[in-house]
């Protein structure tokens, strides 16, 4: 049985095995530094559909099916799908999986959704509530811009602190038995709001939550940062990563080079004009399902602390002058015998 340790963490006994992952990304991500790690790179960001929203659902559908197939399973073998996205009422996910006939938990953690889905999946598997769970998250640059900002063709400039929403879907299959790296623990984040109101500086809005989570996680598990080969936050970008380092330095915690951010890894800011980095649910989801999982499999990484980060807000809340609250969820994935 799992044990609750420290303030916000769970240490697993029957660790869920990540037996397979799948990643599908858009054209821009397919030109980025991580291109060789992705399973599918779309040739057309509409994915053959006639709207961005339908395209996002189609990407989720194809990618989750691919993950199930890669794990050698059929739809009826999967006990639950836990997935979410950024669109209103989670429509990206729901319409993507509506024909699969698999019990579904829809989750929303903004861009931290992949962490939330994996944590809940691991809890289900460990607690005996499920044998096999698919955890996934998706986002689409065009549907996100349309919903959160302005029409795509409006001629505006993005500030240097802005991030670029990743188009894609990342999915992981968690099983009670099987071969692969295991989810050995989770730390669930609390909402941290430092009063940032600039919708073009999400990294700064989420960084305090990530720093808080890392500090809490290390305390709860009683480990130092060097226990991990890689600590990867979700989509803080260059601005957010430097803020996390600064905040943790003040508390005497040095992360060093083992600390990477998926938003920085996924794009080349010099050639891809993405400013502070990538963002969106898919940013951490595809980076995990692609590069990080592949390095776990090869043994290049043996202990990973994966921390998808989310900015909790809506156009309505921003319009009403609310600040952007941050959240982060930590998932420990290790190669254990």
């Amino acid at each position: 049985m799992a044990v609750h340790i420290g303030k916000q963490s769970v240490k697993f006994d029957l660790c869920a095995v990540v037996t397979a992952t799948a990643s599908t990304v858009g054209t821009k991500e397919g030109e980025g530094p991580l291109k060789e790690y992705f399973d599918v790179v779309l040739k057309d960001n509409l994915a053959g559909k006639d709207s961005w929203e339908k395209a996002e659902s189609e990407i989720a559908r194809q990618n989750i099916s691919l993950a199930i197939k890669k794990a050698g399973l059929k739809n009826e073998d999967v006990d639950y799908i836990i997935t979410g996205d950024l669109l209103n009422q989670c429509c990206g996910s729901t319409f993507g999986i509506r024909d699969m006939g698999i019990p579904y938990f829809g989750v929303f953690g903004a861009c931290s959704t992949m962490g939330e889905a994996m944590a809940l999946g691991a809890l289900l598997v460990d607690g005996g509530g499920a044998k096999r769970v698919v955890a996934a998250a998706s986002s689409h640059f065009c549907s996100a811009e349309k919903q959160f900002r302005f029409p795509l063709e409006l001629g505006t400039q993005r500030p240097q602190t802005a991030t670029w929403t990743v188009t894609g879907d990342g999915a992981a299959v968690l099983e009670r038995k099987g071969k692969g790296p295991k989810i050995t623990g989770i730390t669930t984040g609390k909402i941290v709001d430092m009063g940032i109101t600039d919708g073009n500086n999400m990294g700064a809005a989420m960084a305090p939550a990530a720093a808080d989570l890392i500090e809490r996680h290390l305390k709860d598990f009683g480990v130092a940062p060097d226990y991990y080969d890689v600590i990867a936050t979700g989509d803080l970008g260059y601005v957010g990563r430097s803020l996390v380092c600064e905040m943790l330095e003040q508390k005497g915690i040095t992360l060093g080079d083992r600390y990477i951010d998926c938003g920085i890894e996924i794009f080349d800011r010099e050639t891809q004009d993405t400013h502070s980095g990538g963002s969106g649910c898919a940013c951490s989801a595809v980076t995990f399902a692609g590069m990080l999982y592949s390095k776990l499999k090869s043994g290049e990484i043996n202990r990973l602390l994966f921390i998808p980060t989310g900015a909790l807000m809506s156009p309505t809340s921003l319009g009403q002058g609310e600040s952007i609250a941050g959240i982060a969820h930590g998932v420990v994935i290790e190669n254990v015998r």
Binding site: Q157, P159, Q160, T161, M194, I196, E246
Partner: peptide, 21 residues
């Protein structure tokens, strides 16, 4: 705390290249 953080964010955030813009 929030004000301190706001200052930290301003230091960490690159400005737009105003002259070229």
């Amino acid at each position: 705390k929030q004000q301190e953080y706001q200052k930290m964010v301003e230091r960490a955030s690159p400005n737009s290249p105003i002259f070229a813009d």
